[in-house]
């Protein structure tokens, strides 16, 4: 009920802003969706690991930015085709993901959740530092087929690279859906997400499922990182700015529900649109909140709001508290 009320209020604000100046509103809205698509892709990687292991995997942030650089290396240094490079990078990061699971995370079974999260932070910092050591003089963008090109949607222009990002985001979501719904492995993943012990008892190879989840997370990270590095909104280009963007996706994951793929996408889009609207209108309507910076914390404020009303997020599985 309360949640619906909040939704109505937010929607009303959007409608008000839309009538205030349609051109501005729809431009910002489009940018918000584009930004949201990036957040969604990052979050999908978070969600896969959360479902398999019950932890928020900060290493995902490192995999996103590392994946971008591996793609860059293939495209720019080796001169490969863009898609081939991305595929190659996805394979590399899948292997890295499996390696992380096999040689690090698996050894942490039974340790406090906090230690495990800290381990993933360590892995994130490791990947990020490696970038500084390996690619000391990279270009500012991954060369790609859509540089500088836009498509028009009515009076609003959208970057082609953003359209590709949205399509890829939708494709990943759809394949998640298909995977979980129609394949045996997917069924195992769902079972593992619900109850690891029960899944084991049913003869599901839980370690195999967890390893697969890490591989998928690595591959999804590459898509997010490559698109960011190719100049997708917010146009940070190829650099460590990518990890800042990936970190901003965390509240989207909580808003959507930690274990829900559709929640990750919706949460990402909500955060993306909220961000752009905040940048576009806050200085105009609430100048007392400062010249910049409010938009950066708004996602976290929305997150706290959702947590207060519905701790499991919009689409997350409600936790049964075990005593």
């Amino acid at each position: 009920m309360v949640l619906a009320g909040v939704g109505v209020v937010l929607l009303a604000i959007l409608v008000f802003l839309a009538f205030d100046g349609p051109q501005k509103f729809f431009t910002l809205f489009a940018a918000g969706i584009a930004l949201g698509a990036v957040y969604a892709l990052v979050c999908l990687g978070f969600v896969v690991i959360y479902r398999a292991t019950g932890i928020v995997n900060f290493a995902q942030v490192g995999m996103v930015v590392f994946g971008a650089f591996v793609t860059y290396n293939a495209v720019y240094t080796w001169g490969w085709n863009f898609w081939l490079s991305m595929l190659f990078s996805a394979a590399v990061l899948a292997v890295i993901g499996i390696g992380f699971e096999r040689f690090a995370l698996r050894r942490m079974t039974g340790k406090p959740i906090f230690s495990i999260i800290l381990l993933t932070i360590g892995l994130y910092l490791l990947l990020q530092s490696l970038i500084g050591a390996i690619w000391t003089n990279a270009k500012d963008t991954i060369p790609n087929p859509w540089i500088g090109k836009t498509v028009s949607l009515g009076s609003v222009n959208i970057l082609q690279v953003d359209v590709v990002t949205m399509v890829l985001g939708a494709a990943v979501l759809a394949s998640f859906f298909a995977l979980f719904r129609y394949t045996k492995v997917g069924l195992g993943m769902r079972a593992t997400a619900i109850d690891q012990e029960a899944a084991l008892a049913q003869g599901i190879s839980v370690p195999g499922i967890v390893a697969l989840s890490w591989a998928i997370a690595g591959a999804v990270a590459v898509i997010a990182g490559t698109m960011l590095g190719s100049g997708a909104t917010p146009k940070v280009g190829l650099g460590l700015g990518i990890s800042a963007v990936a970190l901003q996706a965390l509240p989207a994951m909580v808003i959507g529900g930690l274990d829900s793929p559709i929640g990750a996408v919706i949460g990402g889009l909500v955060i993306g649109v909220a961000y752009e609207m905040a940048v576009g209108y806050q200085t105009q309507y609430i100048p007392s909140l400062g010249t910049s910076g409010f938009a950066d914390v708004l996602p976290y404020l929305l997150m706290v709001l959702v947590l207060l009303i519905r701790p499991s997020g919009l689409f997350g599985t409600r936790d049964v508290q075990r005593v």
Binding site: Y50, G54, V56, I117, M253, G293, V304, L307
Partner: peptide, 22 residues
Amino acid sequence: RGSYLVIVTLGFLFVTTYVLTQ
């Protein structure tokens, strides 16, 4: 608890730098 607390305290960190800046 757990993951939630980690993310919320991270959010608190961002809010703090924002409030201090303003």
